[in-house]
């Protein structure tokens, strides 16, 4: 939106000439008009179908509604944070096992990574909800949700970490070898710290996926934001307004996570910024 082109745009496109600037200006006006028309029709449609009626919105003025939503939000945050941590640790272990020298372990980690990556998290949740209890293993709904979400994310994260490790230049390893570091120390002191910095943006986008995955909590009746919103919807018969509010909350959460990612990328990027480019990774 700002008048200054971002660095990404600078990298991909040349500076616009007079014709391009004119075309861009026309395009901007046209899309703003279309956007206004779209919003107008959406509101009109809400009005026609009586969705703007006070009875669909008044419950949002009550403290109990918000307390209930906040309880759900707290559930969502708990699941997201615990899943985020487990999936990162598990993803890291899967990656280390896969790139290690032990052939058997490597194959096992590779199969698990691909399995977790390709199974839909909903299917994993059904497995923990419907199949595992049949074998007498009982667990709270929190874990029936958190474990499968963690597993699904760990597969993706293992691949993200592996991409990060591959992105560390080979010369770093060779230099570490040449001063006599052992394999374990090279991984811990040289490769992983650099690989993690490289993948921070991907890690955070995966955290966004985890937050979105938590919305299937209703399957195991775990009271997350979405589940509690559904309860409110049936109590107040307020589908559109409730989903509208919940959507905004999810957008805010994920926007905050993305801002965090930009901040982290900047902070670690500054440390290894190259002379040639002033822009961090």
């Amino acid at each position: 939106m700002s008048a200054h082109a971002t660095s990404m745009r600078d990298a991909l496109y040349e500076a616009p000439g007079p014709k391009t600037r004119r075309r861009t200006a026309i395009g901007t006006v046209v899309s703003l008009v279309l956007l206004a028309v779209g919003i107008f029709f959406a509101i009109r449609q809400f009005y026609i179908t009586d969705q703007l009626n006070e009875r669909y919105w008044s419950f949002l003025l009550e403290w109990t509604t918000w307390r209930f939503l906040l309880e759900g939000l707290w559930g969502t945050i708990q699941v997201a944070i615990v899943s985020g941590i487990i999936s990162m640790l598990l993803g890291l272990l899967l990656m280390l096992g896969r790139i290690g020298h032990n052939k058997v372990l490597s194959v096992i980690c590779r199969v698990l990574t691909d399995l977790f990556r390709s199974l839909p998290s909903l299917l994993l949740i059904y497995f923990f909800f419907l199949v595992i209890p049949k074998y007498g293993i009982r667990m709270p709904s929190f874990w029936m949700l958190t474990i499968p979400i963690s597993l699904a994310a760990s597969g993706v994260l293992a691949e993200v970490f592996r991409a990060g490790v591959n992105a560390v230049p080979k010369g770093q390893t060779e230099a570490a070898m040449s001063i006599g570091l052992t394999h374990g120390k090279i991984v811990r002191k040289i490769i992983l710290p650099q690989a993690l910095r490289i993948v921070i943006p991907s890690l955070v986008s995966q955290l966004v996926v985890v937050v979105k995955d938590t919305t299937v909590a209703y399957v195991v009746s775990f009271p997350d934001l979405m589940q509690n919103a559904r309860v409110l919807i049936s109590n107040y018969d307020a589908l559109v307004s409730m989903y509208f509010v919940v959507a905004i909350i999810y957008i805010l959460i994920n926007y905050a996570i993305n801002q965090l990612s930009i901040y982290l990328a900047h902070r670690s990027g500054n440390k290894i910024v190259t002379r040639a480019s002033e822009n961090p990774l």
Partner: peptide, 20 residues
């Protein structure tokens, strides 16, 4: 091998300083 390499210095074309 690591202990042996510690006894031999190596300087690379691309410097390979630890970037972090």
């Amino acid at each position: 091998l690591a202990a042996y390499r510690a006894e031999i210095g190596m300087v690379f074309q691309s410097f390979n300083l630890f970037a972090h």
